[in-house]
Amino acid sequence: MSKLKAFLKGNVKQVENASLKLDRFDEAIILRPLASAESERIQEGCFQNKAGKKGKQERVFNVVKYNREICVASFVHPDLNSAELQEDYGVRGADNLYSNMFLAGEANQILEKVTEISGIVQDINEDIEEAKN
Rank of each mutant, 00 (worst) to 15 (best):
E69M: 12
G119I: 05
G55L: 11
I70G: 06
E116P: 01
Y98F: 12
V64L: 10
V121T: 13
E38S: 15
G55V: 07
E38D: 14
K132Y: 11
I124A: 01
K21R: 09
I117T: 07
I29T: 07
I124N: 04
A104K: 11
V114N: 03
N62M: 09
K5Q: 07
E27N: 10
N81L: 02
M1R: 13
D88M: 10
N62T: 03
N11M: 02
E84W: 10
L97K: 02
R32N: 09
S39R: 04
G10K: 14
K132V: 13
I124W: 04
V76N: 13
L4Q: 01
R92L: 14
P78W: 07
A18N: 08
D23L: 05
K21W: 01
V63L: 13
F7P: 01
S36H: 05
E69Q: 12
N17S: 08
V114P: 01
R59E: 11
A131D: 09
Q122A: 08
K5V: 08
F61I: 02
M101G: 04
G45Q: 05
Q57E: 12
F75V: 04
V72A: 07
C71Q: 00
E126S: 13
N62E: 15
A28P: 07
S82C: 09
I29L: 12
H77E: 15
E58C: 06
G105I: 04
A73I: 04
V114Y: 04
E84T: 05
R68G: 11
A51S: 14
G105H: 08
V60H: 06
A28L: 10
L103F: 09
R68P: 10
V76E: 15
N133G: 15
A73N: 06
R41A: 15
R41G: 07
Q43D: 03
D123S: 12
D95G: 11
I110R: 06
